[in-house]
Simulated scan of single mutants.
Amino acid sequence: MYYLICKSLHIIGVVSWFAGLFYLVRLFVYYRESLDRREEERSILTVQLSEMINRLFRIITTPAMILTVIAGSIMLILQPVLLQAPWMHAKLGLVLILLIYHYYCYRIIKTIEKRGVLWKSFQFRLFNEIATLLLVAIVFLVVMKNAFNALYGILGFFLFGVIIFIAAKMYKKRRESKINQN
């Protein structure tokens, strides 16, 4: 019973954590694009977006990450046999990368607070796809478990990444051509 409660909380945490990360990086894109606006618009937008970014990170994204990690850890304590499964090692490795991604988002927020953004909006859009790749990899790994062929999984993961990158480039090109037409 306790395991299933933790599993439910873990799933709720994962969904909320990813939703927060996806929206957070989208807000980074909007913040960066607001810097290219006229002064009166820029001053209003940057303040509002900065506040939204901070609230999202503090109130939703980070608590969801904590819930995910705590519930997942309790699940491993309640079922330590899971730590013997190779798929679980891979999952924990991907979760570690996701935690690093989360921390890097925190560093970006600190840069924004200092009124500095080094990236272009397209770079933020690509950065957002890292979370997408991690989500896809983790879900397939958890669902497929031991049926998951590591070689095909890695190839599929990279192929999916290439497809996302190409789609992002095509979107950027189309967007720039629309801007140039106007």
Rank of each mutant, 00 (worst) to 15 (best):
A131K: 05
Y2K: 08
Y152V: 05
W17A: 11
K91W: 04
L56C: 09
L96A: 11
L45T: 00
C6R: 04
F148P: 02
R174Y: 06
A137F: 07
R26M: 05
R42G: 15
K91T: 11
I109N: 13
Q48P: 00
L98Q: 06
I108S: 02
L35P: 04
P63S: 10
K7I: 10
I154V: 10
V69D: 07
S121K: 04
L159N: 05
K114G: 07
N54W: 07
L56Y: 03
I70A: 14
T68V: 11
W87C: 01
K110A: 09
S16A: 14
L96K: 04
V95F: 08
I60A: 11
R115Q: 15
S8E: 04
Q48T: 12
L83V: 09
G116S: 15
F158V: 14
M88W: 02
L98K: 01
R174D: 06
F122M: 08
F122P: 01
G93M: 14
V162I: 15
A167C: 12
A150M: 09
I44L: 15
A147C: 04
G161Q: 10
I163R: 14
G161V: 01
S50L: 12
K91G: 08
Y103G: 07
F140P: 01
I66T: 02
I138L: 02
F157W: 11
Y103L: 10
V117Y: 02
Y31H: 13
T61R: 00
I12D: 01
H102R: 05
F157V: 08
T111R: 05
H89A: 12
F160A: 05
M144I: 11
G93Q: 08
V29E: 14
T62E: 06
Q181N: 12
F165C: 05
I12K: 00
K178S: 11
Y3C: 03
F160D: 02
Q79N: 07
L24P: 02
R107Q: 13
A167W: 12
A131N: 08
L133V: 11
F124L: 01
N128C: 04
C105E: 02
N146V: 08
L78S: 06
Y31L: 03
N128H: 03
V143F: 03
R26Y: 09
R58T: 14
L9Q: 03
P80S: 11
L134S: 02
L76K: 02
R58H: 14
L78Q: 10
R38L: 13
I74L: 10
Y30G: 03
Y3L: 06
I109H: 13
N54M: 04
T46Y: 00
V25W: 01
F22A: 07
F157Y: 10
R115F: 12
S16P: 06
E51T: 08
I130P: 00
L49Q: 00
A85R: 12
K120Q: 10
A147T: 10
Y103A: 07
F28H: 02
W87K: 01
S8R: 06
K91L: 12
P63Q: 07
A167P: 09
I5D: 00
L27F: 10
L133H: 05
L94W: 02
P80I: 07
H10Q: 10
N54Y: 05
T61F: 00
L24T: 04
V139E: 08
V143K: 09
S73R: 04
E40W: 04
S8G: 13
L118F: 00
G93R: 09
E113N: 15
I70Y: 14
E41R: 03
I44H: 15
F28T: 01
A85Q: 14
Y30F: 08
W119N: 03
